[in-house]
Design a binder for these strands. Sequence first.
DNA 1: AGAGTTGTGTAGATCGCTCTACGTCCATCG
DNA 2: CGATGGACGTAGAGCGATCTACACAACTCT
Lengths: 358, 358
Amino acid sequence: MTTQARRSVTIEDVAQHAGVSRAAVSKVIRDAYGVSDEMRVRVTASIAELGYRPRASARAMRGSSYTLGFEIPSIHNHFFPKIITGAMTALAESRYQLIIAPAGPDHDQGPQAIEVLADRQVDGIVAISSRVPQEWLEELGRTTPLVMIGRHHASVHYDTLVADDIAGAALAVRHLYDLGHRRIVHLTLAEGVPDATSSTPHGVRALGYERVMRELGLEPEFLRVDPDDARGRDGGESQAYAAVFELLDRADEPVAIFAAHDELALGVLRAVAELGLSAGQASVVGYDDTDIAEHPRMSLTSVNQSGTRMGAIAVRLLLERIAGRAQSVHEVVAPKMMARGSSAAPEHRAHERRRRTP
Amino acid sequence: MTTQARRSVTIEDVAQHAGVSRAAVSKVIRDAYGVSDEMRVRVTASIAELGYRPRASARAMRGSSYTLGFEIPSIHNHFFPKIITGAMTALAESRYQLIIAPAGPDHDQGPQAIEVLADRQVDGIVAISSRVPQEWLEELGRTTPLVMIGRHHASVHYDTLVADDIAGAALAVRHLYDLGHRRIVHLTLAEGVPDATSSTPHGVRALGYERVMRELGLEPEFLRVDPDDARGRDGGESQAYAAVFELLDRADEPVAIFAAHDELALGVLRAVAELGLSAGQASVVGYDDTDIAEHPRMSLTSVNQSGTRMGAIAVRLLLERIAGRAQSVHEVVAPKMMARGSSAAPEHRAHERRRRTP
DNA sequence: AGAGTTGTGTAGATCGCTCTACGTCCATCG
DNA sequence: CGATGGACGTAGAGCGATCTACACAACTCT
């Protein structure tokens, strides 16, 4: 294990050490056709002895970089780590490595993080950001294998993977309805926020919410927050808190709140906690079933869209694409309801009319 | 904005379009010396018109890839995103991009994630994993700018950045002592787990704990968990839960538990919640002050080591290194106590001797 | 005026790998 | 026995950038 400090060991060094050509070494490390057993053994030994590691950037120039890139819109939303975990597990035995490019705090940096990956010549990209124009993605998908998570529209040049958000929203609303709630408010992103178009998870959840509410003969009631308002990099938790605090403070009857994702739901729970309301007085349902939801102190009812499975599927789709599949695929996974303590049968507040201000 | 689908636009295309040499274009994009205003304008225009983006892998072959790599040991520990956030903010105005390589679920993959970054020819690496041998890092630091977070030992070939874990542990213990607690248990990682040597955060916290306990005339009492036991990728939360459940179930007197990090503390809180104990009966202090600690439903007392600041400092150190600084630096940041509801003055349990089993 | 400076641009080598094309050896076959 | 074809290796071009020279003006000094 002689390691020379100055310049690190290249394929040339290995070739010389093994007494063969560069091409031969290349074949061995790529497990390509045309290598005898004897040669494979010899080269492998040299590689080990010299501690050689092929440089991804050099490989990327002609062949592949053996790297898959994941773009995640926010490093704070605990849902994304689930996807990554699923992806890493799926990738464990493969020769591919995974790197993550987080989108910057300025949310308009939609494509930027994805470009970072493309510039790095990754062999394929999984992206989640909903704030990226469709055409832009089509363009990218034309040259790079691409899987978009959370796009309800199928595409020609890239694969899409999405949870059935209509069904998920229905699960949430029905759960609350079955508990006995009749005032069910949907907390979601402000219109104008690019996420909220109909093809995005939030947009579709809102749609599903509205649809089920009407089916149930209830009047939809939206509460919208704009996470961009906050320079507070918390994904809307504090906006949700403020908006819901006001709403709940005003309300005298039981209210159920269906938040478009757990981050928002946490803000809701904060307001509920500060107002000292019970789950019956203010029921909360989140979306994503992030790790923390299950904690007994949180006990947040949430819709699970199995992030780990999505991560694994995304990887599978991407590898298929890289392997050559031409036509695009649109996969949909089914969500599950996770009922917990934050939602309960409606319970009327004591008659002393309480009102507080933050 | 004519974008040719087939082969993407290279520096050669830009050069031809602008009627200059490749070298000239290269100078412009690197903002290098020897470009006239007139040329800069012309080239910039061509770049914009063609939608040219330099490929990081090609750049990396001779120059730099303008990429910094962050290795994080676990995608689940909510402390690390804080560091990333700080780093991204610090990097916002620079030409450098940030990518993340998460360590795999198998914890022995210490160096692997770091190697992934090194193989990608990043210009510098910030790594957090404590499960990497010192010599290995020295070797790496010899060839690549490297900042290690959470290493208490200074090094010759890389910079180190650490919070004062002795002081942090003292803050935690003193806080509990001042509340009136006398039985203060330290929940930390099992010996044998590589993290727990004296140079790692957990090792040093344990050391600090022991030291302060003795100063206060109290007997240290360790409770150790081994996160590797769990194939449960939860960073020890479930082990912590199990261990503490048993301890608390047995105890009749108030117990204070100082957990080595918030992830463990959440497990403790889970046990506390299930046993229905008050903060006075079982006080909990965590470490890292992750986002969730501050939530009123959690209200976890925790030691804050300002992850965002650490991220920003790490970036600064790395950029200094890249710029040429030769001798290594060892920075220490001071922790802060965040007292919240999970810790309270000891309160004796009601006399009916309760005992439950999971 | 000749010799330095600057300032600006280009040519061409080079980074470390992969890939195509081709050469060689050897066994098999008509 | 020469042709055929498969197995195994090698040579050398090429990927897209950067970087080191160096050329050529246009100025500025003696």
